[in-house]
Amino acid sequence: MSAFINLTGVILLIMMLPLIYRVLVGPTAVDRIVATNMIGTKTTVVLLFIGSIYERLEMFVDFALTYALLNFIGSLTISWYFQRKRAQENPGEAVSASIEEVQS
């Protein structure tokens, strides 16, 4: 069973590599944020795996909880920054107009 936990953790880490590709390449900034957010959520899981490998899950659970909270707050803050920064130019209206034009 401990070999299974090790293997699962390694698979999780390997599957983060495509997300890092999206972070590095991603055409827009929000793409990068989404990929970073997913990596953060999976890091919570990897922390729990580390905890059960070292048999100190009761300690690592607190780390994981804190990490999940920080991840959520981080993505909220970044998107809030985006909305404030772009509020002066207001291109959302332009997108709405183009969508209405396409769909009508």
Partner: peptide, 23 residues
């Protein structure tokens, strides 16, 4: 917490992308 926060952050990032003018 993840069950509540993950759809919420998806939604808010969607809104951020929409406001940033991604077509």
């Amino acid at each position: 917490f993840i069950f509540i926060s993950s759809p919420t952050s998806t939604h808010i990032l969607m809104k951020a992308g929409f406001d940033a003018g991604i077509k």
